[in-house]
Design a binder for these strands. Structure first.
Lengths: 259, 259
DNA sequence: CGTCACATTGATGTCTGTCAAGAATCGTGG
DNA sequence: CCACGATTCTTGACAGACATCAATGTGACG
């Protein structure tokens, strides 16, 4: 619960957005500047509440956060995990009040960014526009994968798939090793992510442990053989969109980016 | 399967995007112009294939389309339905090759729009930028609701919730009445949407019919008492973001929209 | 008229949920 | 340092939802 997620040396936002576009020093400076006003949050503290008028855009700098919805007054469905470098509610500048909740999972540092600043970046500078939009689209892509997982994968592979994703996403921001990463998720949280009960999470984790696929200790996840776990759950990282595409440069020219 | 979805009198794209921003005549003309090159598709014909280099952006003008993923070679998970006025792959101008498939569900008319044209609109004109981005963000919001539904609602309420959503989304583009709308989904399709088997879909539909909540005839869905069905499945349309927000105008001023 | 996909129903099995009860862990305060 | 409560985590017994297997009926279409 209080496992501290390592702070990457560089700005996690810049680390993440490398995959969105090739940013120059000026772009990076603009991005880094967004993270100036920092705020610390307790675990479980809400960052965004559904229906609230958006005061600004929030960015996770340290720790984990998560999105969730409440269904039928009592059931909570976790909709996604937010790691350092992820925007919580970039969409609010367009959509307005959020339709879901966002809360700190671990102790967190977040940046509060005034709407207008992001707004100006998004709708004036086309390369940054592309990059910030890219960030929301990757979110959407991850949601599609989670939905596919929920619908078609049995619970054990669903957990395994989630673990593969978390290892990789944390590696992106320098918060994980080759075969291990922080995993500050309690079993009740995992249950809400996977749409199953805590009790089942416990049993499945035991089975995965017995199969030698994972090891959990001190709120860290160890994966002895990443390839084996990936094969087990049919993990294909394409949906994270981590490859720079050669054809994007051409598209950027068309859009008239040439600084 | 071959039920023809009514063509709204006005351009469905313009009808849909009304909720994204207040567009002037010039904006509407630009949007309408996007839909000039039309193409007809057979049911089940793929519009976008995962991994393919994106040739352009696709827009549904008539009929239904759907997104899906294939898991473990054989299991298909439907990730969303695309109705007239919905972009299939607006995200491709930023993300590149799609990470999922998109196919026609009924006979469809789609517009093929060259990447560059959308690209120019998105990254040059800030009001249209906001509007097109809005469209993708609503997609994302619907995905979150589907995921929540999948994780926390039992199958019967999941179907009911889907039906409420479909009735409303079709009303938006003038393709539905007060209490009925086209429903060109076969039971195997519904099964893939809900993550259950065809057999179960059949039984659940029977139960809903016996409960007097729905009637299905000639590929149309009739909902005798919409309020009752909404109550049954806890349907709250907030996630569709159909309200214009007063504070957006202010934000638009900041972004320098005032044409 | 035969084929094929869709739709319906029954019998049975399995995954996951519910109920119940301990055990382990952790933060807090005495 | 220990005690305490509060979460977690774990395990068992049982029930229910949904899957699988099988069979039959229906309708569209060549």
């Amino acid at each position: 619960m209080d496992a501290t997620v390592t702070l990457p040396r560089s700005n996690p936002l810049v680390l993440r957005l490398r995959y969105g576009a090739d940013l120059d020093a000026g772009d990076r400076a603009l991005l880094a500047d967004l993270a100036r006003s920092r705020r610390s949050l307790e675990p479980q503290q809400d960052i965004v509440r559904a229906g609230d008028r958006a005061a600004g855009v929030h960015l996770v700098l340290e720790g984990y956060a998560f999105r969730y919805k409440l269904i039928d007054d009592g059931h909570r469905q976790i909709l996604g995990l937010l790691l350092p470098g992820d925007f919580c509610d970039l969409q609010s500048i367009v959509l307005g009040p959020s339709d879901h909740y966002i809360a700190a999972l671990t102790a967190c540092t977040v940046a509060d960014i005034p709407q207008e600043r992001v707004d100006a970046l998004v709708f004036r500078d086309s390369r940054l526009a592309r990059t910030l939009w890219w960030a929301t689209l990757v979110d959407e892509s991850i949601l599609r994968e989670w939905l596919a997982s929920m619908g078609q994968r049995p619970a054990d592979k669903r957990i395994a798939h989630l673990f593969c994703e978390l290892l990789l996403r944390q590696q992106l921001v320098g918060a994980a090793g080759e075969r291990d990463c922080p995993l500050p998720l309690t079993q009740p949280m995992l249950a809400d992510i996977l749409g199953i009960t805590t009790i089942h999470v416990s049993r499945i984790l035991r089975d995965l442990r017995l199969a030698g696929l994972i090891r959990l200790k001190d709120r860290r996840l160890h994966i002895p053989d990443v390839a084996r776990l990936r094969a087990f759950c049919d993990f294909d990282p394409t949906y994270l969109h981590l490859v720079r595409r050669p054809d994007l440069e051409a598209a950027e020219d068309v859009a008239g980016v040439g600084s």
